[in-house]
Simulated assay, not measured.
Amino acid sequence: MTNVSTTTSSELPALREPGVGGGLLDVLRWRFLLRLLVRKELRVRYRGSVLGLLWSYVKPGMQFLVFYIAMGVFFELNKGTQAYAVYLFSGIVAINFFNEIFGNATRSVVLNADLVKKIYLPRELFPVSMIWVACVHLLPQVVILMGGAMLFGWHPGPLNLLAGLVALVIVALLALGLGLLFSAVNVLFRDAENIVDLFLMVATWASPVLYTWDRVESNVPHWVWLLYQCNPLTAAVELMHYCFWYPATNESTALPPNLPLWSLLAVAVSGVAIGIGQLVFSRLQGRFAQEL
């Protein structure tokens, strides 16, 4: 008769509550699935499309044209701002990056309801995947921006390029933090999508994308100016200006005062957004399958 060995309790793997993971850290362990989600999102988005990824050039190009005619020509901002085209488009690139991540991340869990209800996987994968999808669309815009800046004599140094990278990191962190928060709330209350749409509409005007920072400083109370500077998108857009527009104009008074300090604050605020977003997401994700 064969002896059956028994496993002691000390040899058993530690049990953990189902559906509870390591949050954003789990994304690193599920990198392969993250790549699949990104590919799936891109295929679904351009299924049946004639232009496909060329829309990454057409949409920002049309947006730039409308804003340039309205603000640059009609309001004559192009006369008071050197290389206004570069100034405008560098801000558009940053704000589009934010809008795409935040907007799509908010809808990501609901749009992947079938996966959420059928299998367990880190739910954070859905909002995080939208960062990489946005990066696919960001690349052609940056290429166009670099080409346009070169026409105006763009000669960036290492600090300028670093500023551009920091700007994109700030935007990605802030958008992901808010995306985690609102994607979780959106599962319970679909009104969250409409709130985010309003937020995205205001975001373009609440940062120096279409106008220069000194117009805000000279027309609002000082406390409003400080609040405006606390907006991480304000620092991110100005860092993009420092990366692409400033090396093409070299205006010594073109940048807002204390930009490095405001940039550090923007990084801190974005980090807090990540923490709050992850906390709310973790608390609510246990209800996702039931609510969906």
Score class of each variant (00 low, 15 high):
Ala134Phe: 02
Pro232Arg: 10
Phe74Cys: 06
Leu111Thr: 11
Glu291Ser: 11
Phe67Lys: 03
Pro256Asp: 11
Gly148Phe: 11
Leu34Val: 11
Leu227Asn: 12
Ser183Ile: 05
Trp245Gln: 00
Ile170Ser: 00
Thr2Phe: 14
Ile274Arg: 12
His155Arg: 09
Leu88Asp: 02
Gly177Arg: 02
Leu115Trp: 07
Arg45Phe: 07
Ala236Phe: 01
Phe97Gln: 10
Ser218Arg: 15
Val220Gln: 08
Val185Gln: 08
Asn194His: 15
Asn250Tyr: 13
Leu77Cys: 05
Asp191Arg: 14
Arg31Asn: 10
Lys59Thr: 12
Arg45Cys: 05
Trp154Cys: 00
Thr7Gln: 14
Val109Arg: 05
Arg123Gln: 05
Met240Gln: 07
Val66Gln: 08
Asn78Thr: 08
Phe182Gly: 00
Ile95Asn: 01
Gly103Tyr: 04
Ser252His: 13
Leu227Trp: 10
Met240Ser: 07
Gly157Thr: 11
Met62Asn: 11
Gly148Pro: 04
Val185Asp: 06
Gly177Cys: 04
Leu161Lys: 05
Pro140Met: 08
Lys40Ala: 09
Leu24Pro: 01
Glu11Leu: 11
Gly277His: 01
Leu255Ser: 03
Ala14Glu: 14
Leu37Trp: 02
Gly61Cys: 08
Phe97Asp: 03
Arg123Thr: 03
Leu233Lys: 03
Tyr246Phe: 15
Leu37Asp: 00
Leu255Pro: 01
Gly91Asn: 12
Pro260Leu: 13
Tyr46Thr: 03
Arg35Pro: 04
Lys59Ile: 13
Ala134Asn: 02
Leu168Val: 09
Arg45Asp: 06
Ser218Gln: 15
Gly275Lys: 13
Leu121Pro: 03
Val73His: 06
Val171Met: 02
Ala105Met: 07
Glu76Ala: 12
Asn112Asp: 05
Ile274Val: 15
Ser263Leu: 06
Gly177Gln: 02
Met146Tyr: 06
Asn112Trp: 02
